[in-house]
């Protein structure tokens, strides 16, 4: 193999390793829901090619309001699905859509776009610290 082939081969192997790490293993930004006056846990989530934050931690047994702000008109993310809570919600472009439900079981629940390509996680805990940010 020539030097350039070595460079390209090693570079390619490194790029593959980086793709796997970045998309599957790297830590995602998360947020803990803020507990409001009426006992509703609120989190604002920006929808733009993904969910930011993509991991949301909430407390079990209290109502949760996820405020999805869809920041573009890409049809890929026009719907959000929280299958475990029986929710499939259309998100109008450039608007904030609030989705309210009460998680009754603790655990990690996935949410995704209507086509299952863009993902987020809802972590329901028995107790969470109440000084979360979003």
């Amino acid at each position: 193999m020539t030097a350039s082939q070595w460079v390209v081969t090693l570079g390619g192997a490194g790029a593959i390793a980086w793709v796997i790490y970045y998309f599957f293993l790297a830590a995602r930004a998360g947020a803990t829901a803020r507990l409001g006056a009426a006992g509703i846990q609120r989190v604002a989530i920006e929808v733009l090619g993904g969910y930011a934050p993509s991991t949301v931690t909430v407390r079990r047994g209290l109502p949760v309001e996820l405020e999805f702000h869809r920041a573009d008109s890409d049809s890929c993310t026009e719907e959000v699905v929280l299958e475990d809570f029986g929710i499939r919600q259309y998100l109008p472009a450039y608007q904030t859509t609030a989705i309210q439900f009460t998680p009754t079981e603790s655990g990690t629940f996935a949410f995704s776009c209507g086509m299952g390509m863009v993902h987020g996680r809802l972590v329901v805990q028995d107790e969470v610290s109440n000084d979360g940010h979003n």
């Binding site: 090619g49 993509s54 573009d72």
Partner: peptide, 19 residues
């Protein structure tokens, strides 16, 4: 243009799609 802006936005969130 939207393919690139969406791909970049998704990339920042560690996600990738058709864009």
């Amino acid at each position: 243009r939207h393919f690139y802006t969406r791909a970049w936005a998704g990339f920042r969130h560690h996600s990738a799609d058709m864009s």
